[in-house]
């Protein structure tokens, strides 16, 4: 339990996906002009991130990784073949598998939302197609499986917290940018450059969280 809390706080504050891991910057810069759209985008990202964390973990553990849990190996064993558990190493297909899972997941969520909850679809629908190419989603899947080797529950908690961290940064950014509209800014710095400077200052503030002790 304590471990899950550490993962969660870590992903929201210390290793904030946008401000310290640099994942999901395109939507961060793209849809942070208004607080309302930022909120919608953030919610949609949390939703897809949790789903993607869960599904990619299952695929990774039971289909791609070699070992006792590999389904191909279990089937081969059931058919009487004496192959070693290391024979089915499909880890090299991970990138292509994950991105296809995420793309179909986004399509699926879109369809379900349209049928089940038109209100939610109206709120989140326009952000969903953008999410496929949001590197934070593929990033969280890669981190959960390849780099950090989390278990199922840890992966889902990590996915959820990463989404919350994304939403937090997006909301803060949109709040600042709404006010920046009226600030006198040198001509060449308007728009993109000043957005980067703002993120730089926010990122500096978030560096302070790395002193948190557990």
């Amino acid at each position: 339990m304590a471990n899950l809390l550490v993962i969660s706080i870590g992903a929201i504050l210390i290793n904030n996906f946008i401000l310290s891991r640099f994942l999901g910057l395109c939507p961060f810069i793209g849809v942070s002009k208004k607080t309302e759209t930022a909120l919608g985008m953030g919610m949609a990202v949390i939703f897809v991130m949790v789903l993607a964390s869960a599904v990619t973990w299952v695929i990774w553990t039971y289909l791609l990784c070699p070992g006792e849990t590999n389904l191909f190996w279990i089937v081969a064993r059931a058919c009487g073949s004496e192959v070693s558990a290391q024979a089915f190493d499909l880890r090299f297909l991970e990138t292509i598998a994950f991105i296809l899972i995420i793309a179909s997941l986004v399509q699926f969520v879109e369809l379900v939302l349209k049928k089940m909850s038109p209100a939610l679809y109206d709120a989140l629908g326009i952000f969903l197609p953008l999410i496929t190419t949001n590197c934070a989603i593929l990033g969280v899947a890669e981190l959960n499986t390849m780099s950090l080797g989390y278990g199922f529950l840890e992966s889902v908690v990590h996915g959820f917290s990463a989404g919350v961290g994304f939403l937090l940064a997006l909301l803060m950014m949109s709040g600042v940018r709404e006010r920046l509209e009226f600030a006198p800014i040198p001509r060449f710095m308007r728009g993109l450059p000043v957005a980067f400077i703002t993120s730089g200052l926010m990122s500096m503030a978030f560096l302070g969280f790395s002193g948190l002790k557990f």
Binding site: P193, F196, I197, G200
Partner: peptide, 25 residues
């Protein structure tokens, strides 16, 4: 060290975008 930490990345890119706009103009 700030320059190779995350904030430095944002600040440097901001300067580069502004500079490229100036050159283009």
């Amino acid at each position: 060290i700030m320059m190779i930490l995350p904030p430095g990345a944002f600040l440097s890119l901001a300067m580069m975008v502004a500079a490229s706009r100036w050159i283009l103009e």
